[in-house]
Design a protein around this nucleic acid. Structure first.
Length: 409
RNA sequence: GUGGGCGUAGCUCAACUGGCAGAGCGCCAGACUGUGGCUCUGGUGGUUGGGGGUUCAAGUCCCCUCGCCCACCCCA
């Protein structure tokens, strides 16, 4: 019986694993600098958490969630995004607000896989909870700029829009519906369906883009407070030389956003060009039963980051390979291997009895810098032969001098 | 969920209108009597994704199914 992984999932190993972990380390360091603390929340939650926060009419909840019933009859969902869980955790653990939280975790969405899109994927998420100040929104851009830097992503760009507050959006929705009702007949079937359920989504439609060119801009329907918030953000961005363009069609697929929304995009990705996205969600905390608390955040897709990144793993040749000339010496060789690992040196050894030649071949293939040779002759002389694989030189060394020999490689 | 492309050795791919499943790389070994890379020589390697059908004969044609890639939808 042979098995294969579930569609849209991946095995991450070898170089890709090393890169992902390196990126995690770097992100951790950056988030530490900005004063964020990391959090791990459960992989699955009560399905209602997402229904109420992400939004009942969103594609994510409507058709992309992995939902199942556990043995206790609870309806459970694999998390499709991180923000609801983080807010839930803050409330449940009475974490003091304001707070700054980050996470690095796998997310699950039942979509058809394509370039840069998987059913299980990794996100780096950042949430800043507690302030209405547009400086918070601005900080998201600052952090992303720094992350793009350390992930070595070069050609990225920001798109920004404002969704206004709940009231603004209500008024805008009416206005948009008015405008669209005259065009409804010429729109595609998807858009006709969206008209009732979620008219904002029609702005996203590529088929009908031409037909609705002169749609009303939401930024013209913002209340004074939201307009000022947006102006301040733009000012901060300009002052700090963060380039962005305003995309009045950017509405995002999650219901809870208010005021600022944004995406980071890359030209290197194909159709799924968003490296990350986020925005302000001032109403969400209240929706899930907490105090009325403003917040802002974003998430980035690590697989997409890796696609867009120019980062190359450093070429570290520091492996020490142990070889032995006869089966009788195997256990001695293995003890040497154990000894060296205690010295925290990177080493390896083959256990199936093979010719010295074959062991040397293996050492070379694994990229060994040094080979320690255990042989009968060397045994008699109380030491080992060490071969420098780059120079091809060999040197005899006494057993007691071995640790020192590798001290400064 | 909808469309298009594709599944042949570990990898990259050949195999005309149906006619004995192949190459390169890799892997293993020898040339080199305790020593890697380079070179040469030999060897290993397959239920042609799976199932069914048509045929004397199917990698090739037909149907079903699974998977991968790309796009739509939507998003990270």
């Amino acid at each position: 019986m042979k098995f294969q992984r579930i569609k849209g999932t991946r095995d991450i190993y070898g170089k890709e694993y090393e890169i992902l972990m390196e990126f995690y380390q770097r992100a951790k360091k950056t988030m530490d600098k900005f004063g964020y603390s990391f959090i791990i929340t459960p992989t699955f939650e009560d399905v209602n958490l997402f229904i109420h926060s992400t939004g009942e009419t969103t594609d994510i909840v409507e058709k992309e969630m992995y939902v199942f019933e556990d043995k206790g009859g609870r309806k459970v969902a694999l998390r499709p995004e991180g923000t609801p869980s983080v807010l839930r955790a803050i409330l449940e653990n009475d974490i003091e607000i304001p707070c700054k939280v980050a996470y690095f975790a796998n997310m699950f969405r039942h979509e058809k896989p394509q370039k840069g899109r998987f059913r299980e994927f990794y996100q780096l998420g950042v949430e800043y909870i507690g302030y209405i100040d547009p400086l918070v929104d601005f900080e998201m851009f600052l952090i992303i700029r720094e992350l793009m830097d350390i992930f070595e992503v070069k050609n990225y760009y920001f798109e920004v829009n404002s969704m206004g507050c709940i009231d603004d959006r209500k008024r805008y929705k009416e206005e948009l519906k008015n405008y669209l009702s005259e065009k409804l007949e010429v729109l595609c079937n998807d858009c006709k369906r969206r008209f009732q359920r979620n008219p904002l989504r029609i702005l996203d439609c590529k088929i009908d883009a031409e037909k609705i060119k002169d749609f009303p801009r939401i930024t013209e329907f913002l209340c004074d407070g939201c307009a000022e918030h947006f102006e301040k953000l733009k000012m901060y961005l300009n002052k700090n030389n963060i380039k962005f363009s305003i995309n009045p069609k950017l509405v995002r697929g999650i219901d809870y956003y208010t005021k600022t929304v944004f995406e980071v995009k890359s030209g290197r990705l194909g159709a799924q060009d968003a490296l990350g996205g986020g925005g302000r969600y001032d109403g969400l905390m209240k929706i899930i039963g907490g105090p009325d608390t403003p917040a802002c955040g974003f998430a980035m897709g690590m697989e997409r980051i890796m696609l867009a990144s120019e980062y190359k793993l450093p070429y570290e040749k520091d492996l020490i390979f142990i070889v032995y000339t006869s089966p009788e010496l195997k256990e001695k060789a293995y003890n040497l291997y154990l000894f060296l690992t205690k010295e925290t040196l990177k080493c390896d050894i083959v256990l199936d009895t093979k010719s010295l030649k074959s062991q040397m071949r293996r050492a070379n293939k694994k990229g060994a810098k040094y080979v320690v040779i255990l042989g009968e002759e060397e045994e008699k002389m109380g030491g080992y032969k060490i071969k420098d694989m780059e120079k091809g030189e060999e040197k005899f060394i006494k057993k007691e001098n071995l640790p020192d020999y590798f001290k400064n490689i």
